[in-house]
Computed example of a mutant assay.
Amino acid sequence: MSELYVLKYVSPIGEIEIQGTNEAVYSIMFSNRNELLTRAIEEVPIQVLAECAIQLDEYFKGERFEFTFPYAFEGTDFQQKVWNALVSVGYGKTTAYKDIALAIGNEKAIRAVGSANGKNKLSIVIPCHRIIGSNQKLTGYAGGLWRKEWLLQHEKRCLRP
C-alpha cells in the first residue's frame, strides 16, 4: 500500500479522522478528542482525502446523498459481502441485521453481520448507522448511539420536501 495520510475533519457531531492514500480512502472514523480544530480542506495535499472531506461537508449540509470519491475496504470475504450490502441501504432508510444476513444469502449469520458491521472503518459512507435491531431499536455504533440517532434524524430531515 502507498503512504497513508490523515486529514482531520470537523463535523457537526465531532471530529472525524479520514485516512487514505493517493488512490483511496481507507478509514473514516469519529475521534473522541475534544480539541478545537479548524477545517483545513484547502491545505491538504492529498486530493482523495480533500474530496472525501468536501463530500462529507455536503452530506452534513443535506446536499449529498451518495458518495463518489474512491474508497476501499479491507476485510474477510464475509465482511466485504456485508459492507457491500450496507451500501444498498438507501439514504434515510433503515434495515435490520437479519435483512442484511438474508441479502448476503446467509440467514443464520445475524450475529456475524453485526460483528462485520462493527468492524466497518468507513463510517457514514458505508452506512452502518442505518442498521437497527429487528425490534426497530438502535443498537451498537462505534461512534456512539447518540451519533447514530443524529445521523438517522439528519437523513430523515434532509429527505423531507
Rank of each mutant, 00 (worst) to 15 (best):
L56N: 04
D57H: 12
D57I: 03
Y59A: 02
F60D: 08
F60R: 04
K61N: 14
G62K: 09
E63C: 12
E63V: 08
F65K: 15
F65Q: 12
F69W: 09
F69P: 00
P70C: 04
P70I: 03
P70V: 07
A72F: 07
A72P: 01
F73G: 12
F73C: 14
G75F: 03
F78N: 03
F78K: 01
F78Y: 03
Q79C: 08
Q79G: 07
Q80Y: 02
Q80G: 05
V82F: 04
W83M: 01
W83S: 00
W83T: 00
A85F: 00
L86N: 06
V87T: 14
V89K: 00
V89F: 00
G90H: 08
G90E: 15
Y91S: 03
G92E: 08
T94R: 10
T95Y: 08
A96R: 13
A96M: 13
Y97P: 00
K98A: 09
K98V: 10
I100K: 04
I100G: 02
A101P: 05
L102E: 14
L102A: 13
I104F: 06
I104G: 11
G105C: 05
N106G: 08
N106H: 12
N106Y: 09
K108V: 12
A109P: 03
R111G: 09
R111Q: 14
G114K: 07
G114N: 09
